[in-house]
Design a protein around this nucleic acid. Structure first.
Lengths: 155, 155
DNA sequence: CGGCATCCTGTATGATACTG
DNA sequence: CAGTATCATACAGGATGCCG
């Protein structure tokens, strides 16, 4: 990368301790947090489902959900199915939804470079395969996870 | 997200233990690894500069570089400046360069949602601001970090 | 079922010290 | 300068148990 004005004095740039990436990693500080985030994109809403599907322990999931809630990525909302007792369910906030590129870019990098099992998942919108790209901001696509179909190719 | 065929049996999908994101997080398992990756994108090549600029300790950087090298993200190449002794320098491989969307998406999410200091950095290519997007794969932009200019807005 | 407190283990990190 | 080994600490994760 090139820097303007020139990178003669790094202290003038917010690329050291104040780098946003560092702050994000303090919020998504654990593997469990990332796995819970993945399940949120996949539509998981119930606590025990997070535990099963992340293959993490209940305490780890509990901590991760609390951490994500504090960060404004997850909202806990009470709901009640008829005839059932009240429960909480977990949903991505708009800020959480904004993590879609981060999530997808990690998945797709792994699919490309660590591929060693079943064929990678294909993410589609309206029948067209999707990829994460660095592109001019004015051509913003802003695909939301709700609009994405995940296809499993035959092996 | 929606799933096709339907997500009745999760075991048929590589979204559990075999999820690529999980494997990626086993490679980029530490905060130091992410910070070193950031510096690689910013053009840092020398060991001591990584130590200074990541604000991590030398052992942590050493371990992170080794981890990234093993994963094929970093290449260690010897070089010699005239009149100087031989050294090693560290460079992103093509696989490492492919992590650009992951890196940028984290930075930009932090800039948007954890913003609390100096104005966020602007990443440009040919004078146009860049953003990470989820878009149809056939419109692939494939911007490389070398083509990106980082601009620091006045505060 | 949903969720959290407690305890124990494994790992990430930094300080220090040492080598080329 | 460019690392690495060793050790001590802090934190993430799982197992267990308890409570609504």
């Amino acid at each position: 990368m090139k820097f303007e004005p020139s990178l003669s004095d790094r202290s003038q740039w917010s690329i050291g301790e104040g780098c946003s990436m560092t702050k994000v990693l303090n919020v998504l500080s654990t593997k469990t947090a990332f796995q819970v985030l993945r399940e949120l994109f996949f539509g998981t809403v119930r606590f025990d489902d997070f535990v099963d599907r992340t293959e993490s322990s209940a305490p780890a999931v509990s901590r991760a959900l609390k951490q994500l809630e504090t960060a404004g990525i997850v909202a806990r909302e009470p709901y009640q199915e008829p005839g059932q007792r009240a429960r909480d369910r977990y949903r991505l906030t708009n800020a959480g939804e904004d993590l879609l590129p981060a999530f997808l870019s990690l998945v797709q990098w792994g699919d490309k470079h660590l591929h060693d099992g079943p064929p990678p998942l294909v993410f589609e919108e309206a029948g067209r395969a999707l990829a994460v790209q660095v592109a001019p901001a004015d051509a913003a696509a802003r695909t939301r996870s709700d609009d994405i179909t995940v296809r499993r190719p035959g092996r």
